[in-house]
Simulated scan of single mutants.
Amino acid sequence: MTRRNVLIALVSVLSVALASVVTGILTGFLPTEPTAQAGPGEVQTRYVVKSGEFTVAVHVWKSDAIAHVTDGASRAAWMKGVSGGDRLLLTGKDGAVLDARVTGGTLTGTADVAGAKVTFAAPVVPAPAGVYRASGDVDGRKVRIDVIVLPNKEAAGIEWVDGKPSGTTEADLTGQTVQVDGNQLKLAAIQPGDV
């Protein structure tokens, strides 16, 4: 290997390292040790709360975080970003932003969703509380259902048909399913690649 190739390889490695540090600074924190142990793909921490007319759910993995905020009728947003430290700064479509910090096991912050500013203080909650999705074709229509399950087993969600809100839906949490026009769709917990 020539000296020139060694220098090119070194510059490439340093560029990647610098980009990682800059990304950490811009998102408000640098990665730290996780606060909970979980296997690959398993949620480490779930935060869920109802705040006024909106329900907020945040799932945090070792290096990823996803938030869903919905009024359960027509307004909703998905946001994602990286996790680590005590701050989450997640972004989504149409200017949706969730900015929050973890203090004493509670995620406190704000979310901008569909022109509304939601202030929340969400505690850590055990499964099955969290955010889920079911999707499929029903009578030639593309149906997606996003459901946030609260610790008391109440659910807030919107049924989307061909990309448009079609009202709320009832979830069977024992069978982890939802019914759409007599068709049963399976609910699955959200994973980092789903948003």
Rank of each mutant, 00 (worst) to 15 (best):
E53L: 10
F54W: 10
A65H: 04
T174E: 15
G193D: 05
I158G: 07
A134P: 11
S74D: 14
G193T: 04
V56W: 03
G157R: 03
A9V: 02
V82Y: 11
A188P: 00
A73V: 15
G163Y: 12
M79L: 15
A73S: 14
F120C: 01
I8H: 05
T174P: 00
S83F: 12
D64N: 06
V6K: 13
L90V: 13
V118R: 03
L26H: 07
L88P: 07
T103Q: 15
D86T: 14
A121C: 13
D99S: 15
V82A: 14
A129C: 09
V178M: 05
D64M: 01
I148H: 00
Q37T: 13
R133L: 04
D181Y: 08
V143E: 05
F120N: 03
L90N: 10
D64P: 05
K50Y: 08
A121R: 09
K93N: 15
T70Y: 02
P126V: 02
F29C: 08
W78I: 06
D146S: 11
V195N: 02
D64E: 12
K50E: 15
D139V: 08
S166F: 14
V143A: 04
G115Y: 14
E33Q: 14
G39N: 05
L187D: 06
N183P: 00
L30G: 08
T27A: 07
A189L: 06
A156C: 05
T169Y: 09
G182C: 07
A134C: 09
L26Y: 05
A127Y: 03
I8E: 12
V43F: 01
L10S: 12
G95M: 13
A9R: 08
G140A: 02
R75I: 04
T177P: 11
E159P: 00
E42T: 07
G52K: 03
V49R: 01
L30E: 12
Q191Y: 01
D139K: 11
Y47T: 01
P123L: 08
S74E: 15
